[in-house]
Structures are given as structure tokens and as C-alpha cells.
Write a protein that binds this DNA or RNA. Structure first.
Lengths: 339, 339
DNA sequence: GCATATCGTCGATGCGTATCGATGAACAGT
DNA sequence: ACTGTTCATCGATACGCATCGACGATATGC
């Protein structure tokens, strides 16, 4: 492996000049820069990350804390991870993986060993144990998810409350008097993740504002329970029924189940799919969808962290950013009567 | 941040003694070890990773190359990643993420900058561009997936061929004369990943050996095409039909579709689910499954790489390891008549 | 013409650790 | 008591880079 010393020798300059050519922190004449760059090219020189970290006190690495729990491994998680890694590269940084299996010691470890300059925490719970630890860390941290006590923290997430409101707005615009949300069973684990409450909160709030009767039934993957939920929704409806769900299996079967009951989606009944990967599903089933834009959330998390690092102070500032979901109207919602 | 010098001062020894206490590479008396350990504890000392990498020429970090392409983001990918990260920690190593968006230059970069001591490549294609680059790298590399030219490389994957054989064996034992595999549409992208061919190769081979008529139809997510495939399978069957599929949506609907036709799984027809996350699906639908054990594949990949690194020579050896799939008999296959 | 500012480069130093050679102490054998 | 060992520890050095102060060479002011 060639070193910057080798490059210096090849270019006939001093090692420090090579360093300044690479960093641009001091002016270098066109002539010597060319020489140095040629030497770098020829030797295929790449700076040693360890030495660089040691001397500059920055690693250019971001720690990403991911959940290890298998039940959380929905498809979107890997998309989050990949987008975060790709965005980090655009800012000339790399991603070090930390699983939450290590717990809070893992955070202290990667920061203490100076393996990374900052952290991104995924799957942040409403009352996350890691928050008190994070507050003491000397590096900036960005949360993906909104804990209850977000004071002084930097948090980014999809705007679930807005998604709930948008959902009801769509139904109201289509002339529905009532709607049913199927899914997000309030299991023990789900209670910790408050996005369910945020979505339902927004939905119920908007339902009240729009004078629309909203009910929520916890979905389940088996067909019978979905059918029961659908029948309940139809019976309760005062006019054409409307259904929304954030669960893919539910959405997959909903059109079929409704057609079996003589209800054509987009004509006699409305369906809205909510989720993180709604595009392919929505296009295939021609479903109106509300996408939570996980790629944008991921990208912004990295950008925010990089901004904190660029400012140099290393301290984390309070920041709350909610990414607006994207509504895509397709054929599963009844057209607005006003049009 | 305290340094090993601070620890040395607090313990009243030299810095090198602290280093030897931590590495154990030279004998240290019980007394001084206790003193040093106490000082480490009290100062919450953690060695600086950059300095350590610089001095020891090892980073204790493994690079993990993941696909960025969204269509590959099935749920199992994040499970792979998390298991790899957790296993790496058990070997006192961390994981640096590299997306294949960077291409082969990404590999050369992380190795050239000495950000990691070795690499794990996921989603290896039959004729992967990265192979010639990997051969020139000076660090050990483990492939997850089996390329066509595996000479001199270290590869690990699920044994898809065995899964195919096991599948047919199950059907044959249940007394079936024929079977249909639904799924794995041979699209452009899928051709590069040869596991489809490996599975089907094993299945057809075993079908011939067992005198069983096997056909394969590319599945699709919409219900109509699945129903068509099912009807085809029923019509072609000489005796009770049998179906296998590696696609979750197909498996989700298969029992329902068959019941609609008056065929009860496990009595009039057999179903086998093949995949990387078959447990919850299999238990819910009471499906006999063949699981490809992604967790084992991931774990073994890390262990293999760590072994290469432990041996010190840094060279990669040829190695081919196929993880046997696990057959779990539940209620969707017709009981063997011989029992 | 000299004093002063600006530019481009060099040498020296430090970052925190691992590791090698050396040193001194304790100890066994004669 | 003297040499030869083994054991525990220390001091010095190197790892590769960033960065600071210094210095010579030009350019700018009057």
C-alpha cells in the first residue's frame, strides 16, 4: 500500500504538500497540484482511514443502529438501510452497523472507541431506553421515529398524523360518511412504537372535523378475520363503505373480498392503502395509496446528521422533521362528486 | 476521552504495560493487571479504533456489500444484515456497509483505505462483475451466493438444489405422481441469480429419479394467474395434485384457491412452501415448509471470514459451503401412505 | 528603493496504540 | 557466590496523516 510519503517522493514534494493538495486547506500552485495528482493516480494512492482518523479526530463514518428483532423485519427496513448507506456516500461518509442487540452499551462503545462521528437510531420507541444514554454522548445523534420526550433531540419520521388526516380527507372528498381502518393490531410491541397512535390520532381528528364516522379494527393475516372486519364495515356504513389499511396482506385481499360481496372498488366502495412500499402494490391492484416515503425519511436523516457534523461544534441541536406522505390517486377510491 | 497513557498514569505503570494487559500478548503479574483493570474501569477507558488500526494494521471491521436495487428488498435481506452484524460482534468485529451502487470501485475503496479487513458480498450473481476485482484484492472475501466460476473463491449459500430434491422427495413420499412449482418468474434480472436454476435443477433431477412428473409455471402476484396455474396443475395431475412455491403471496392464497375447488390441503392435495422466512407463514397456514435458513447462511459467512482473518495469512482459500434447508412437516402435505 | 503583505512549500510535531528490544528482578542450578 | 534462566516491566519507535509555524519567493504599497 502506498503512503502519502510515497506520493510525495514520486511528485518531488513534501508529504505535507500532498496532504494539502488532497484537503485543499492551503493554496497550492497549479503546477505542483498537477504533479501530485499524477503521482496519486499512478500509485493508486488511497489515504489510510485509521491514520486519517487519528490525526484529524474524525472518522467520516456514521453509526447506524438497527433493530435485530425479527418481527420488525418488514421489507422496508432493508430499503431504509440501503438508502442511508447510499446517501452517506454522497456526503463522503460510510456507515457502521450497530444492532440494538448490544443495547445502550453498543452506543457507548462505538462512540467511545471513536469508530464513528455520529449516530442514526432507527425504530425509536415512544419511551426509548436509549434516550438518556444518547443525551450524554458527545456526538450528534439523529432519531428515526418520534419519542414522547423529544426535548433537545433531533428526530425525523414520516408524518403519520398527516397520513391519517389525508386518508380521511380522501374519503370525505369521495362523499363517504364513514370509514374503517383495518390493521395495526395493538400488540404489546406495537404500543412502544407510537406511529400507530399518531396515524389513528390524525385520522380520528380529521374524521371529527369532517363529520365522518371512523372505526378501527385490528387486522390479522387470516382471511376470515379480514372478512369479518369488512362485513362489519359494510353493515355500519351509512352509504358506500370505505376501508383503509396499512397491512399488505389485508390490501392484497381486500379487492377480492369486496368483489365477492358485489362491491366494486372505486364505484361502490373506496380502498386506500397506507405504507412504506405502496408503489408496486398500488400499481398492481390499482389502489389509491398514501406512501410514507421511507426513502425520503432515510435521506433526510443522513443529511441532517451530516449538517450537524459540518457545523463542527459536534453538539446536537433540537430538530423535529416530519416527512409529508404522498397521496397517489388510482382507481380504488370513488371519484369526488364535486368533479 | 482518556487514553492508554492516562490509564497508565492512574495505575502507576507504563503505557506499554496497559497495552499488554489488554492484549494479553505478554505475561503480566496478577497485581499489576488488577491495578490496570481498575484504572480502565474507573476512567471508562476505551481504546481508540483509529490508533489501534494504524498501529496494528487491522481494523477489526468487516465490509458488507449489500444490493441497493429496490426489487431485491425482500424481507429477508434485513434479516441477513442484522444477523451478520450480530455475529460479527460475537467475534469482536464491526460491520461497515457498502452498497453495490458504488460498484467495484467501492470494494477497492474500502480495502484501499483500509477501512476493513475483509469483505462479505451478498446477492452474488452467476457471472458477477465483481469477481475479477475481488481476485486482485489483498483481503479475504466471502460470497453469499454461488457464481458459475467459483474457482479459488469462498462461497456460502443455501443449498437450493437440495431444497428442490427435498421438495420432490416429500411429494413422492406422499404418493404423488406429479407436481407443479409455481413462482420465480424467469425475468431478466432473475436469470443472473442462479438459485432459481439450482432449485429447479435439483427438483427436476429428483423428479426423474422418483418417476414424478414435474412442471414449472412462473408465478405472478395476481390472483387470476395463480388460479390458472392451479387449474393447470389439477388438470395435469394423475392422482392428487401437488404444489410448491417460493413466493409468499402465492402461498398465502393457495389454500383458499384449492378449497374453493373442493380440494383440502393435506388430504386431497399437497402444498409445500419454500423460502427464507417460512416459519410464521407456515405456522399460520399450517403449511409444510422447506426453509432456506438465511440466519445460518449469514452466520456461517461471518464465521468463515473471521477464520480466514484469524489464520493471519490474509489470503482467501477456496471454500464452498451449502447450508441444508430444513423441512418442517405440518398439515399441508398428504401423509405418507407407508406410515 | 525598501518595507510589507501574499503565496506556495517545507519541516517538525502530535494523534493513540502495538510491539520490539532492553533492563532489572527473582530464582534455580552448580 | 556466580552464571544462566525466566518473568515482569519499561522506554523507544513506528504506524500514516493533518496541521502548525516558519521560510523563501513574489507581488504590492509608498
Amino acid at each position: 500500500m502506498p503512503t502519502s510519503k510515497d506520493v510525495a517522493a514520486a511528485a518531488g514534494v513534501s508529504q505535507s504538500t500532498v496532504s494539502y493538495v488532497m484537503s485543499g486547506k492551503r493554496p497550492i500552485s497549479e503546477k505542483t497540484r498537477k504533479k501530485v495528482e499524477a503521482a496519486i493516480e499512478q500509485l493508486t494512492y488511497q489515504p489510510n482511514a485509521g491514520a486519517r482518523a487519528l490525526a484529524s479526530r474524525r472518522t467520516n463514518v456514521l453509526g447506524l443502529v438497527i433493530p435485530l428483532t425479527p418481527d420488525a423485519h418488514v421489507g422496508s427496513l432493508s430499503e431504509f438501510i440501503a438508502v442511508i448507506a447510499a446517501t452517506a456516500r454522497q456526503h463522503d461518509r460510510d456507515i457502521l452497523l450497530v444492532t440494538d442487540e448490544e443495547g445502550t452499551e453498543g452506543l457507548q462503545r462505538v462512540v467511545g472507541q471513536q469508530l464513528c462521528d455520529g449516530l442514526i437510531l432507527m425504530q425509536v420507541e415512544a419511551d426509548d431506553d436509549r434516550i438518556p444514554v444518547v443525551r450524554k454522548l458527545r456526538v450528534p445523534v439523529v432519531f428515526i421515529g418520534i419519542p414522547n420526550e423529544a426535548e433537545g433531540l433531533s428526530c425525523i419520521d414520516a408524518d403519520f398524523a398527516l397520513a391519517g388526516r389525508q386518508c380521511i380527507e380522501e374519503f370525505a372528498a369521495a362523499g363517504h360518511q364513514g370509514a374503517t381502518v383495518i390493521g395495526w393490531r395493538p400488540e404489546s410491541g406495537d404500543r412502544k412504537l407510537n406511529f400507530v397512535d399518531r396515524f389513528l390520532g390524525g385520522a380520528f381528528e380529521q374524521a371529527e372535523a369532517s363529520g365522518l364516522a371512523l372505526s378501527h379494527v385490528s387486522g390479522s393475516a387470516d382471511i376470515a378475520s379480514i372478512e369479518a372486519a369488512v362485513d362489519g364495515g359494510i353493515a355500519a356504513a351509512d352509504g358506500p363503505p370505505a376501508f383503509a389499511s396499512p397491512e399488505e396482506p389485508v390490501l392484497e385481499m381486500l379487492p377480492r373480498i369486496l368483489l365477492d360481496r358485489g362491491l366494486k372498488p372505486g364505484v361502490d366502495v373506496s380502498i386506500i392503502g397506507v405504507g412504506t412500499q405502496t408503489k408496486s402494490l398500488g400499481e398492481r391492484l390499482r389502489l389509491t395509496t398514501i406512501d410514507l416515503e421511507p426513502r425520503t425519511v432515510s435521506r433526510r436523516a443522513v443529511e441532517l446528521l451530516c449538517n450537524f457534523l459540518k457545523d463542527g461544534d459536534g453538539g446536537q441541536r433540537q430538530h423535529l422533521e416530519l416527512i409529508p406522505p404522498v397521496v397517489t390517486q388510482r382507481d380504488s377510491t370513488i371519484p369526488s362528486p364535486t368533479h
